[in-house]
Simulated scan of single mutants.
Amino acid sequence: MFAMSSPCKPDLHINEPQNCINDLPNEVLEYVFNLVSPYEDLKNCSLVCKKWYLGVQKFRVICTRLPPPDLTFPIAKRYSHSTCVHENCMYVFGGCTSTSTTFNDLWSLNLNERCWLRPLTMGNYPTPKACATLVSYQDKLFLFGGWSHPSPYPIFQAWKLFNELHVYNIESKRWSSMVHSTEPPAMAGHSATIQGHLMVVFGGLHKTGDHGLRTNSNDVWCYDIENLVWTKQATTDNRPAARFGQSQVSLDKTSLIILGNIA
């Protein structure tokens, strides 16, 4: 703990060295950084002073197995759900189970406190779906595409693909359905990232025609979030192979990486 002398009293020990937070040895800083969460708390530590900022930049986050998070509000087991991170929360939407159940619930995981919360949402709810994409932009989440898991009864039910775009306002906790004159085809297993003010969507399993036909795609669609317009992006001939189930990572406002392939 560091004590500050009162400005109303003369300093009687003016010749003695004055300690400050910059005098903490690196070993103590390393110990402090290991005690805090690697998310919002570690970011706040970098604002203390220049030395702490440089220390956080060099700090290595090591993955370890931690105790399960607080399950006061347990989230059901699922796979092929959609996730994204906004500020200090990870959001999870939908997904399906091995018993042919598809969800349209939204959950948030506080990354500092490691506790689940299901927001009481309002508005136009998305269809229950899996293999959709969920990205964050400012104070909103954008959910696009996906497919519904076919039930085993009655038999011979086909998967249903969607081209729905829903926006979730984090502050008002409200879903909104977006309808446009030009829209991408129904798809699932695609990938998406935010590049500047664009949501860039690549590939996926696309619906072709009205007869239930589906094909892998390597098309690029862009949604202009500021102007609320979909555009099919023209690209060079040297495009990635058609695929679905891939990962897409944003490098900066103009560049991204596509990784993985299920042809």
Rank of each mutant, 00 (worst) to 15 (best):
Y153H: 11
P10Q: 11
T102H: 01
R60L: 05
H81M: 01
N238W: 00
N34T: 10
V36R: 14
L111S: 05
H211G: 01
L165T: 08
E87W: 06
F162I: 09
F162N: 08
P128T: 07
E226F: 05
D139A: 14
T133V: 05
G212D: 07
F93A: 05
A76F: 14
I257S: 02
P17G: 03
T121S: 15
G260E: 12
M178A: 06
C20Q: 00
L141D: 03
T83M: 12
E113K: 13
V135I: 11
Q246I: 03
N227S: 14
N227L: 13
M122L: 07
F202A: 03
G204L: 03
N15W: 00
L134T: 03
T101I: 11
I225D: 02
T208A: 07
C222R: 09
E16S: 11
E30P: 01
Y39P: 01
R78I: 06
W107I: 04
G145D: 04
L256T: 01
N227C: 12
K140V: 12
F33Q: 06
Y153P: 00
W147M: 05
T101A: 04
N112T: 15
P150E: 04
I75Q: 09
L35K: 14
N19M: 05
Y137V: 11
Q246Y: 01
N15C: 00
K140M: 14
K50M: 10
C84S: 03
L47K: 15
G94R: 06
L117I: 09
W159V: 03
S191N: 06
Y53F: 14
I14P: 05
R239Y: 08
C63I: 04
R174I: 05
R239Q: 15
P67K: 02
K232L: 08
C20Y: 01
P25D: 05
C20S: 09
E87I: 08
W116L: 05
K160W: 01
G146H: 04
Y168W: 04
R65K: 12
K232R: 15
V179K: 13
N26C: 07
S148C: 03
Q157R: 13
T83P: 02
